[in-house]
């Protein structure tokens, strides 16, 4: 039983570390703002959940697990919100994906009138 929990928790921790490293590479290597933001948010949510699950399994049924779950819920709420705020700000400023040149904005969508000619460098 102990061995099983150890294996599970280390699988979670290694998986979480892998996601975090991958998202860091993605932030550095992806071509434009939107793809980079996507990479960052994947690392934020996916990697964080796995890491915290692994740490919960390590600590067992203690107060530490309760605190870890509270931290997890907190990050689970704030991470995507921060990503949303950044993406929203970029959309309002008029940035559009570089790879979507033929893309027409949706009718009646918010900021459909923003200037699509402004790209990031």
């Amino acid at each position: 039983m102990t061995l099983l929990i150890e294996i599970l928790s280390w699988a979670c921790i290694l998986g979480g570390s892998f996601f975090t490293v991958v998202s860091a590479v993605g932030i550095l290597r992806f071509p434009d703002f939107w793809a980079r933001l996507h990479a960052a948010s994947v690392g934020d949510s996916g990697g964080m959940i796995l890491l915290i699950a692994g740490m919960c399994l390590q600590s067992g049924l203690t107060l530490i697990t309760v605190k870890l779950i509270a931290i997890g819920i907190f990050l689970f709420i704030t991470g995507p919100t921060a990503t949303h705020a950044v993406a929203n700000a970029a959309l309002v400023t008029g940035w559009r994906p570089t790879s979507g040149e033929g893309l027409e904005p949706e009718e009646n969508a918010p900021y459909a009138d923003a200037d699509p000619s402004v790209h990031d460098e």
Binding site: T81, H84, A85
Partner: peptide
């Protein structure tokens, strides 16, 4: 448009 931010 700040609905999500407001709720959170």
């Amino acid at each position: 448009h700040h609905l999500i931010l407001r709720v959170i």
